[in-house]
């Protein structure tokens, strides 16, 4: 009689030996994978503090601005800031801007005060707003005269950083930079969301610039191939309220280049 253990799956029972093997495999797998899961949590790159106030709509009252990007200039906690405005999904809010032009009946934007409703996107430095409801975001337009906006020229500079899509970067997604977010950032910027150059100071992002052409006009299409990778930009820098703008010299492609040094440093030192 051959009593050698032989496992057959369709039989109801299993020998002690194979049951032990199953138990050993299950326990080892769980221990190994849980150890990996915990290790992953401990070494995973930190997430920046940013928020998308999803499903909560906020009203903001202020002056509509078109430069450097479409936004609303308002007072928040005693400080005048510009809240850039973007559309729902991966799109700009230019249809709302056009509607505001129509509804202002020929008045300039520094002659009216508007109340807009949308979803706030913010991190510790910057506030953005998604005009989630499209045209319904425009709640009120009233007469009010605003003083001209001061634009301060800083001069020519060469700056290293990463071109990001600010809607995701400042809170809709987290993390929203580097190669892993590249495709999404390309979709957002090609959908009209203004590109922003984010500057790192060590592990942290510390400064931001809107990127425009030398006339302050959008250059979304031209930056697409450089999104999500380290770049060096040279151009003239301006300060507009709490934002900075880098106007990249033309021809654009000769003024923007991959920052291979930074790329190499990333590869060699794990940033």
């Amino acid at each position: 009689m051959d009593n050698e253990e032989f496992y057959i799956g369709w039989q109801e029972g299993a020998f002690i030996g194979v049951k032990k093997a199953r138990k050993w495999f299950f326990i080892s797998s769980v221990l190994l994978l849980v150890t990996f899961g915990v290790t992953y949590l401990l070494v995973e790159e930190k997430f920046v503090e940013s928020y998308f106030d999803y499903s909560n709509l906020t009203e903001i009252k202020g002056q509509v601005v078109e430069y450097p990007v479409f936004g609303i200039r308002t007072e928040l906690e005693g400080q005048v800031i510009t809240v850039p405005l973007v559309g729902f999904g991966k799109f700009d809010a230019l249809p709302v801007l056009n509607e505001l032009r129509k509804q202002s009946r020929g008045k300039k934007f520094n002659e009216i005060e508007v109340t807009l409703r949308g979803t706030l996107i913010y991190n510790e430095d910057k506030v953005w707003m998604e005009l989630t409801e499209g045209m319904e975001s425009i709640l009120l337009i009233e007469d009010r005269l605003f003083p001209p906006i001061k634009i301060e020229s800083v001069g020519s500079q060469m700056i290293s950083g990463e071109i990001v899509d600010p809607k995701c970067f400042f809170g809709v997604m987290n993390p929203a930079y580097n190669k892993i977010h590249r495709s999404c950032a390309i979709r957002c910027i090609s959908g009209g969301i203004p590109p922003v150059l984010a500057i790192r100071d060590g592990q942290e992002f510390s400064d931001y610039y809107f990127v425009t052409d030398e006339n302050g006009q959008p250059i979304n299409e031209a930056v697409l191939q450089f999104v999500g990778t380290p770049v060096k930009l040279s151009g003239t820098v301006e300060k507009v309220d709490d934002w900075k703008v880098i106007k990249v010299s033309s021809p654009f492609l000769s003024a923007i280049e991959y920052d291979y040094t930074s790329e190499m440093a990333d590869c060699l030192s794990y940033k």
């Binding site: 999904g89 799109f91 495709s183 979709r187």
Partner: peptide, 9 residues
């Protein structure tokens, strides 16, 4: 859905 939807493509 996260990275590619609600876009122009």
């Amino acid at each position: 859905l996260n990275f590619h939807s609600l876009s122009n493509t």
